[in-house]
Design a protein around this nucleic acid. Sequence first.
DNA 1: AATGAATGAGCCTTCATTCAT
DNA 2: GATGAATGAAGGCTCATTCAT
Lengths: 216, 216, 216, 216
Amino acid sequence: MKLNPQADQAETRQQLLEAAGAVFAEVGFRNATVREICQRAGANIAAVNYHFGDKERLYMEVFRYSQEKAHARYPLVSETTAATLPPEKKLYFFVHTLLQRIFDEGEAAWHGKLMLREMMEPTAALDFVVTEKIRPMSVQLSAIVAELIGCPVTDARTWHCGFSVVGQCAFYCHSRPVVARLFPEQTFDTEALHQLADHITKFSLAGMKPFRVAKK
Amino acid sequence: MKLNPQADQAETRQQLLEAAGAVFAEVGFRNATVREICQRAGANIAAVNYHFGDKERLYMEVFRYSQEKAHARYPLVSETTAATLPPEKKLYFFVHTLLQRIFDEGEAAWHGKLMLREMMEPTAALDFVVTEKIRPMSVQLSAIVAELIGCPVTDARTWHCGFSVVGQCAFYCHSRPVVARLFPEQTFDTEALHQLADHITKFSLAGMKPFRVAKK
Amino acid sequence: MKLNPQADQAETRQQLLEAAGAVFAEVGFRNATVREICQRAGANIAAVNYHFGDKERLYMEVFRYSQEKAHARYPLVSETTAATLPPEKKLYFFVHTLLQRIFDEGEAAWHGKLMLREMMEPTAALDFVVTEKIRPMSVQLSAIVAELIGCPVTDARTWHCGFSVVGQCAFYCHSRPVVARLFPEQTFDTEALHQLADHITKFSLAGMKPFRVAKK
Amino acid sequence: MKLNPQADQAETRQQLLEAAGAVFAEVGFRNATVREICQRAGANIAAVNYHFGDKERLYMEVFRYSQEKAHARYPLVSETTAATLPPEKKLYFFVHTLLQRIFDEGEAAWHGKLMLREMMEPTAALDFVVTEKIRPMSVQLSAIVAELIGCPVTDARTWHCGFSVVGQCAFYCHSRPVVARLFPEQTFDTEALHQLADHITKFSLAGMKPFRVAKK
DNA sequence: AATGAATGAGCCTTCATTCAT
DNA sequence: GATGAATGAAGGCTCATTCAT
């Protein structure tokens, strides 16, 4: 019946990655069970061991897999309209993309959560995540901030302003259950994400003004 | 033999709460083991079940216990020098207090971490935490922001600005391992916390400016 | 009901040791299952972990436990009638004791088998076994052989003659199923062990003669 | 594509037998894994079940296969220079051949080890091994011993002396790890095997003297 | 005929919890 | 009241075996 066994294996593999991504994002690495992942993927309990060796290597592969998907869905600004935009627009793009990645609710709802979870509760995978996913974003944000305040990218002020921007975005993900209780009106649909990106960009652009270095 | 069995029991109870707070803050509710908690408390393995019924009820009690201690250590601004200060100073106090709670490294280092952990990975205890700990802080911050931008405390802009402030603070806790990798110079000692509070206050005060409602 | 809980624990511990000794002797370390051991000891599956930490440490404890019992039951010659005997008698005692340990069929049938199994398929426990059990026996045998052939105990001839003696004894244990098939008349009851010890002693005493060093 | 599928199949089969022999000899039947065997044979994971039905039948086939090879490599004395030699020489040949089989380190190092392992830890294959491999050797050794001591081959004394000879040889294999610890100087290269065979033959010839039956 | 993806039973271990003292 | 030995469910992982191709 199976016309293409190789494609079949790839499909099982991908279903495991998707299921694992969802479960890891929901409950974290240690609390996730291989049984749950295999069940969601419609696979046998031994499938993880067969395809990935063990739980930890599956976790690493999930990150690799997640990266490709996220980049494909929401390319960062540098990869699209690029450097010709004014830095204010670039900042908005950056913030909006970050929020989208974090609140993507479609088939790939777990990408952002997974990354934030790894940031808070690091495992051996953190080095990979930092190198491959976070540092590129950080570099890009630093460049935008540096352009806005006129500091070198390595200056502490640049870093702190960058963290202030990212912190505002991450907060809505980290503290979503709390936000939902304190401020139930807040939604996270497409329209709300635009408004949120607007707010954060506006707040941040103004917030950086006192740090601006006098230019000639 | 025991001269004062009642005091003894109360002492064991408190040591269990302290140990549990530390362990829960370090590894989260599910990853924490009663064995570890009892061991640190110098108590019997059955002590948790004896004193609190089960692990979950211990967890709830830890929050109740934590609240008292935190308030005693770092009273928020309203409870001290209060309303006579200019809102800029109040904001600085708020931010600095929040950072101190988050990065307190002393004997009771776990209060802030525990709360942030609960915010990210909510359990049944979240309702208690929101009601008893977070909402009061939120009310206080909203009042400060409202005073600064001239909006009612219930206005969405007030909330969003409040979240922008808190987000900047929480980021350093949530993402501490990542910050350490990207920006190793960043420390979190007393001096650094002052500088961080300075930065966040400066950034936030400037950031709120565009949201200020014209008053006459 | 339990009048003496401490004695109870010790009893459970000992039953686990006895059961483990039997199972390890029968099927080896890796093939033995904790389930089987606990079942035979009338204990829960988690009992091994509780009392010994894990399977490997249980295995080590079994050797320690076995040593005490074996020494108590069959003290070697040096520990009894000692050095006044002629070396021929000492050799007989040594051989007979070794055979008894190997073929002990009573409550402690597994002591010898366990040791021989460890000798053939060594684990981390082998160092302990060699140091604590085998080397003392080896020293004793070397002394007897050296006395008989007039070589120093460190001479290669002494060693080889010693191995020839031990090899004859060990063979009946190692190859018991084969011996039973080739020579069904052979039994291993008290009487047979005496005859076997007689044969091996006689064979060995004569076998060593060509290695005797001329003395004045 | 395959020019000669039948030869191909036979080759895979033989490679499986070789790999299985090596693995079984190294770690025993139960500790051996079909994965390892197939991997070493360069075959598919399902090859064992395809060619032999299951792991156990493969094990049996390994013995059948091993017998042919061993006989080809080290024909016993009766099959070569045969009966014209004096029994002392025959004994030396027997001992030396046995040691060679046990310590053969070449491409087929596993024949002897496999047999000794089966002797110690018998499986269903033992009957085959005894009938096809061990009994012929036993018969041959009994004949030599009988010739030396003048007893009938069925006499218990003949058996016991035979066991004494074989026991000395088997000891070095069974207890090799222990010997290595107690007597590190002992090697098992070609030269050492000659010396070992010399020692055992000398020891055994002298050892049998007291059992010699007077003839006239 | 021959493959390799997939299976499910079983292993060691950990854990919160219970129960008899 | 307080202990700690004992429990059983569940977790990650390994393995021989099967089955569709």
